[in-house]
């Protein structure tokens, strides 16, 4: 599918930009002064404790929550593939996987069958959504989000309910998608170790952005340690980051300096 001309021509422009974003819900400051740019091809992970506003931030970025002040700007014609934290489909709504994938745009039978095969749920097209297991459901949501060749893939704790193989597949798929489709990936996760391995940039969120930067830098930052405790050396080894896979070298990285370790990539 052809990418929007606007987006192609303006590859240096952010796909998505939040400026001075404030969100108050029922008198509580859920998000304060969030500034965020998302560039094509980067994988950004948002980490933060429960109730720190991670999901709210994603929902504000897709336009589901009106900011109290500040604004969100999407590149024109931006296609977002969104995988929500959970999705309840009412049992009175008969919805096969294939029908769900055809919402809101229609896709060819072949395109859907291929997407299902890639997601590891081959031949499930005629299964009702409510008949999928938790892991299969999650895979189906992800496959649907990718079907439109999104410019941005947004994942809200999307690996929950997946078994170990499923989780590994899942992160492999994210990197693969970034490399082949070239979309940006913005994800929220609790799964610190695995997520930090795949991210180009980590944003540590606790109502405001505490710190952000390369995974190694963030995990060493005092703000991060204050939230998650210090990270042991073994875990740090997992956070190794390969600069050659980094599509944009020129980000500003807040937080501590980091030293590139000399270990082999042992993933």
């Amino acid at each position: 599918m052809a990418m929007s001309a606007n987006i192609m021509n303006a590859s240096q422009q952010p796909l998505l930009r939040a400026q001075g974003l404030n969100i108050e819900i029922a008198g509580r400051h859920v998000l304060e002064q969030i500034d965020l740019d998302l560039m094509r091809g980067e994988i950004v992970t948002i980490v933060g404790p429960n109730g720190s506003g991670k999901s709210t931030l994603l929902r504000a970025l897709i336009g589901a929550i009106e900011p109290t002040s500040g604004h969100v700007r999407q590149a024109s014609g931006l296609r977002i593939g969104y995988v929500p934290q959970r999705l309840h489909i009412d049992p009175t709504l008969p919805l096969t996987v294939r029908r769900f994938f055809n919402l809101p745009g229609r896709h060819s039978r072949q395109a859907i069958d291929d997407a299902l095969a890639r997601a590891g749920i081959e031949g499930r097209g005629e299964t009702p959504m409510t008949g999928l297991s938790g892991g299969q459901f999650q895979r189906a949501l992800m496959a649907r989000a990718l079907l439109d060749n999104p410019d941005v893939l947004m994942l809200d704790e999307a690996s929950q309910g997946l078994d170990q193989t499923g989780t590994a597949d899942f992160y492999r798929q994210i990197e693969e998608v970034r490399n082949t489709v070239g979309c940006a990936v913005l994800m929220v996760s609790h799964d610190l170790h695995v997520v930090m391995r795949a991210a180009d940039r980590v944003i540590c969120l606790n109502h405001h952005i505490c710190c952000q930067g390369l995974p190694e830098a963030v995990s060493a930052a005092p703000e991060y340690r204050a939230l998650f405790g210090s990270v042991d050396e073994e875990a740090l080894a997992l956070f190794r980051h390969d600069p050659h896979h980094h599509p944009h070298g020129g980000h500003e990285h807040h937080g501590a300096e980091f030293h590139q370790t000399e270990h082999d990539d042992a993933q």
Binding site: R59, A64, I80, Y82, L87, P104, M154
Partner: peptide, 19 residues
């Protein structure tokens, strides 16, 4: 129809896709 159906399945999915 399509937009109504998507909004019924999930409001967030609808927002994400411009509905």
């Amino acid at each position: 129809w399509q937009a109504l159906l998507l909004s019924t399945v999930s409001e967030d999915l609808a927002y994400a896709q411009g509905v």
